[in-house]
Design a protein around this nucleic acid. Structure first.
Length: 886
DNA sequence: CGTCGGCATGGTA
DNA sequence: ATACCATGCCGAC
């Protein structure tokens, strides 16, 4: 597909043989050819090339597309244009340059600094540390690394790297290379050598002269932190990037003057430059840097290992699950960047009086300084209050392996008032590379066991020191958790009061299972479907890995539930209910309503822009429009005069969304949700839905936020869209005939009530319905017909909940609304100017109790992937009645 | 006798 | 089958 260089260069035609456009007078350079010259391209192709979408544009049907083993993104590996967009992996497969670079950069930036090492007072140790400095290595050049040499040499897009002194560069990268080798493929002998070598390198960076306390026996003593060294400075410089160099943290086009091509923006990197995160949100960048950026698989499985070292090695249960609040609590200082490392649920042994915290081996090796002697090193750790502690980081030989422990943790653990079952988190604070320890109370403690934990100990992430958690900032989340706990009743009560609770590994797992016993029947997809852009906000479009996402300044909202239908003219419409008079009004299908919409806002039908105007729909029509969906919901929606929605509606939605996500293991049995299937949405999940404060309240993620949470949500959303679209296509192909039969637009006019919108079109939402039936039924996700238990009415009021039968089938209602959601999503993809409308989805919660609070969660992301637009909106089987019930 | 330190054992992934 | 890790065990103090 690439024509021969000579011919193309000499011609007036764009070098791209698939283009044939004329080059401009001053042709733009594309990739470097084997002759050394550059391909001369027309503007269009040059732009595509520079933006990294050349192969996507011109080689889509060519062979050679492969998927990045890390993020799953497809990369064209079959031409010269994209030759630098990927790197071949030792174990086979390829990794896109974004991931490859990210991993390497992560390795660099994640290098622990000695600032959290307590400097040993032992002379031997000093000898070891200082005898062989890393400058030796620096002078000897980079340690062999063959996978992605360009990753280390970029200067165009990573000026910070060049601002570093060469030694620093060599040190950081070399050590991490060593570590990468160490953790991945080197034989044990060599591994040991490398490990010790790297250890010396690391330790050589220590300053022998600074000595604060003795090596041992000082656990729990606070002290002033020591300042950093050049390695730390590197971390500072690299993480506190200049606004003009925003691409360091984000994946950047692979660019290197050392490369033959020197091209920029090959397909491996499709991220467009994003606004620089504010300093206060730098941890987002760090997170983004450290966390997976594009893999649905990884999203499903939880966060990726955020640190370069040990990446892909840690078990999911050790993956950190930090929320913004957590990070902010840790950082406090807005200039700090926090990088989650790992977390561990405290075992009885850990929390016992022995004061030994067993560290997961891979975590220890990945994130803590290498140690070659069993006595290890004293480690400085700062807790979330800013208090600093000294632990002895050491290991025991064990079965030809090592068992890493932190000794002397008892004072800290007692100080934090954590116990077995609680979770301790480790993260790194930049600048300084300080090791930060946080705690998260176990989520399932029964109230009787832990009255003092009250609402904060309900599975929503918080730090152990309860007084640190700002109650206001947690209000909504607390409510969510509170509801969850209430709804679950005794099910989730897990006693933790025994000091030596003997929470063995088995117990631990059971514990996790219990955490997941939130029988909320909403899936992530469902929750996603609830989210709408805020009103009257123009979205900024951010392109992430080739996908466009709309981002809004304000928190997303959940809009008014409407029912989509097709009128007799085949025009798509929707029915919305006035907030005041509860009459149903006909609206164009592409409009979106705020949650509190009234007739007076009905600008589309002036004649019915007042509550005094009659309703077009007859009761019968309405009845037929709704009941198939959900009698309970119908009852509610049909209600003509009940108390208006209270102001907590959105709160309730937040709660719902939180709960929904908490329960997102979806319909998996709790036991299988625990650690492997969907660790993300366990209690403590840090996904945006779980952590997002209610609309308009509390800190929000900015539209430019690139934190892992936001990125994850975006990717997930994208995947959701694709999946749904695919399903939709399949289903539509299967049921086209049926639909045609059910589409009887004239019937309504004749008095035949319109069927529920979802009656025939629930296919794309099948998966979303989910979760009905037994929680143990692995197939229930696929079922769209079984009773839809456990739904939550997002807008329900406690008073009204009483009318709802817990066992009532509101699934069809949900499906209806999901249909609407689907329509909305598709419309969003097609109608670029309709971002100011809203939908609202209503569900009922069987376990709902009067007085329970509700919150709302919101998120407004829109995937604009081409695939999403391929299919037309679903044809809704409901027709628009035109008769007026007067 | 209680605690500590180190190692061994066995369940689990 | 293996590695990991929770914790049991035991000698030293």
């Amino acid at each position: 597909m690439i024509s021969t260089p000579g011919a193309a260069l000499s011609s007036k035609i764009c070098f791209n043989s698939d283009c044939k456009d004329l080059k401009s007078e001053i042709p733009r350079k594309g990739w470097r050819l084997r002759t050394g010259e550059f391909a001369e391209l027309c503007d269009r192709c040059a732009s595509a090339f520079e933006e990294g979408r050349f192969c996507d544009t011109f080689h889509l049907n060519a062979s050679g597309w492969r998927s990045c083993v890390s993020c799953g993104k497809r990369v064209h590996c079959g031409c010269i244009v994209s030759v630098h967009a990927f790197t071949l992996l030792d174990a086979g497969g390829i990794e896109c340059i974004v991931c490859a670079r990210k991993n390497v950069i992560l390795g660099s930036s994640s290098s622990w600094s000695q600032s959290f090492l307590f400097h040993s007072s032992l002379p031997e140790r000093y000898k070891e540390y200082s005898a062989r400095g890393w400058t030796q290595l620096a002078g000897s050049g980079p340690v062999p690394w063959r996978q992605a040499p360009s990753l280390f040499n970029s200067s165009v897009s990573q000026p910070e790297l060049h601002s570093r002194v060469p030694n620093e560069v060599d040190l950081s990268t070399s050590i991490d290379r060593l570590n990468v080798c160490d953790r991945s493929s080197t034989p044990s002998q060599e591994k040991k050598k490398i490990e010790e070598f790297s250890e010396r390198l690391m330790n050589g960076n220590l300053k022998p002269g600074t000595r604060d306390i003795q090596e041992k026996g000082n656990a729990g003593i606070n002290f002033e932190e020591q300042r950093n060294t050049c390695l730390t400075k590197f971390q500072q410089s690299s993480l506190k990037e200049e606004p003009s160099n925003p691409s360091f943290v984000l994946a950047v086009p692979c660019t290197s003057p050392d490369e033959a091509n020197g091209q920029i923006g090959v397909s491996g990197s499709q991220l467009q430059p994003k606004p620089q995160p504010t300093p206060a949100k730098q941890f987002h960048s760090a997170l983004q840097n450290g966390l997976d950026s594009s893999s649905e698989t990884r999203i499903r499985n939880g966060r990726t290992q955020p640190d370069g070292r040990g990446k892909n090695n840690l078990f999911p249960r050790y993956w950190p699950k930090f929320t913004d609040q957590d990070l902010q609590q840790i950082t406090g200082d807005s200039n700090s960047v926090i990088t989650p490392l790992f977390e561990k649920m405290l075992s009885a042994s850990d929390a016992g009086r022995i004061g030994r915290l067993v560290l997961p081996k891979k975590c220890a090796e990945a994130h803590f300084p290498p140690i070659s002697q069993p006595e290890g090193l004293p480690l400085k750790v700062q807790d979330s209050k800013g208090k600093e502690w000294i632990f002895q980081f050491r290991f025991w030989p064990n079965n030809n392996s090592r068992m890493y422990v932190l000794e002397g943790v008892t004072p800290c653990i007692q100080n934090m008032q954590v116990q077995a079952g609680d979770v301790v988190t480790f993260s790194r604070l930049e600048p300084g590379g300080k090791l930060v320890m946080g705690f998260r109370k176990a989520s399932t403690a029964s109230a009787s066991d832990q009255d003092n934990e009250a609402k904060n100990s309900n599975g929503i992430y918080m730090h152990g020191d309860a007084e640190m958690a700002d109650p206001t900032s947690w209000s909504k989340v607390d409510k969510s958790g509170y509801i969850a706990k209430e709804a679950l009743g005794a099910k989730v009560a897990v006693s933790r009061k025994r000091k030596n609770s003997m929470l063995g590994s088995k117990s631990k797992r059971l514990r996790i299972d219990n955490e997941d016993l939130i029988e909320l029947k909403l899936t992530w997809e469902e929750a996603q479907g609830l989210l709408r852009p805020p009103l009257n906000h123009v979205a900024s479009v951010v392109v992430i890995e080739g996908f466009e996402f709309e981002e809004y300044e304000d928190a997303p909202i959940l809009g008014k539930p409407t029912i989509f239908a097709t009128d007799t003219m085949g025009e798509k419409i929707q029915w919305a209910q006035c907030e005041d008079c509860f009459k149903w009004r006909r609206l164009p299908s592409n409009v979106f309503l705020p949650s509190k919409w009234t007739c007076s806002s009905n600008s589309w039908d002036p004649e019915r822009s007042s509550c005094s105007a009659t309703q077009e729909l007859t009761d019968e029509q309405l009845e037929n429009l709704l009941p198939q969906c959900n009698p309970a919901a119908y009852k509610k929606m049909k209600a003509t005069k009940t108390e208006p929605e209270n102001g907590d509606a959105l709160e309730g939605l937040d709660t719902l969304a939180n709960l929904a996500i908490l329960g997102e293991g979806e319909s998996l049995p709790a036991s299988s949700k625990a650690t492997t299937k969907h660790p993300r949405h366990r209690p403590g999940c840090s996904c945006i839905v779980c952590i997002q404060p209610p609309s308009g309240k509390g800190p929000k993620h900015k539209q430019t936020c690139t934190c892992n949470v936001c990125e994850t949500v975006k990717r997930r959303f994208r995947t959701l869209m694709l999946r749904r679209e695919k399903k939709q296509s399949q289903k539509e192909a299967e049921t086209t005939g049926k639909k045609q039969q059910t589409l009887l637009p004239d019937k309504v006019r004749d008095g035949d009530p319109p069927p529920c919108t979802n009656a025939e079109n629930s296919s794309p939402k099948t998966k979303m319905v989910a979760t009905e039936g037994s929680a143990d039924d692995p197939n229930r996700v696929k079922s769209s017909t079984s009773p839809f238990k456990g739904q939550i009415d997002l807008n329900i009021q406690p008073e009204r909940e009483e009318e709802l039968s817990p066992g009532s089938d509101s699934g069809s209602m949900m499906r209806s609304l999901q249909d609407a959601t689907d329509l909305y999503l598709r419309q969003q993809s097609m109608l670029t100017s309709s971002g100011n409308s809203n939908l609202e989805v209503t569900q009922t919660q069987p376990g709902g109790r009067p007085g329970e609070e509700k919150i709302s969660s919101s998120l407004n992301l829109r995937a604009n992937h081409q695939d999403v637009d391929k299919e037309p909106p679903a044809v809704f089987s409901a027709s628009a009645p035109t008769s007026d019930t007067g």
